[in-house]
């Protein structure tokens, strides 16, 4: 059945849109006076830090690869790209569990603030196919992200960070 009566993705998108609208209006209401002009920092997502492993090593590739996690890291306020920022990435994949050490790896951003790390294919776990990304070093405020894949068949996922100096 290509189009089920009630598609879970439509529900998710609807709830995410609704939730996102609430978060946006709430956050802007709270923070407008301080940073009216600048780029607002990325807020951690709920559940983002689940199964995080502080100090996961910087790797060329997690496991045997086949799936790409990418994104861009900028500074809050002026939006300048940040180079040499360590981003940890982990997920439930075809090779290991989210909590297994071999599922975790870190990478550094390039001069343009982007990062890209190959990892095994993410498979749905705990309801949805999702990945985890973390920035957790002293220079900026810690941010944990938990982006959801729009389809479990996707072979890439991206998430961007706007970091607030600590």
């Amino acid at each position: 059945m290509a189009h089920p009566l009630l598609n879970r993705r439509t529900l998710l998108v609807a709830s995410a849109t609704f939730g996102g609208a609430l978060v946006t209006s709430g956050a802007s209401g709270l923070f407008t006076p301080a940073r009216a002009q600048g780029l607002a920092p990325t807020q951690s997502m709920r559940g983002g830090s689940n199964n995080y492993r502080p100090g996961a090593p910087i790797v060329e590739r997690i496991g045997n690869g086949g799936f790409w996690m990418s994104g861009r890291v900028r500074r809050a306020g002026d939006g300048a790209p940040l180079e040499g920022i360590r981003i940890q990435i982990w997920a439930h994949t075809t090779e290991a569990y989210e909590r297994d050490p071999e599922s975790h790896g870190a990478t550094l951003t390039g001069p343009d603030g982007t990062f890209r790390l190959e990892m095994p294919q993410i498979v749905p776990a705990f309801g949805q196919a999702h990945g985890h990304l973390a920035y957790d070093d002293p220079e900026f405020e810690t941010v944990f992200l938990r982006p959801i894949m729009s389809s479990p068949k996707d072979t890439s996922l991206s998430a961007d960070f706007v970091l607030q100096p600590a």
């Binding site: 059945m1 998710l12 749905p124 309801g127």
Partner: peptide, 11 residues
């Protein structure tokens, strides 16, 4: 159940 993406067949 409907919101979960897991081993159950959609139909």
């Amino acid at each position: 159940a409907v919101l979960i993406e897991g081993p159950m067949g959609t139909v």
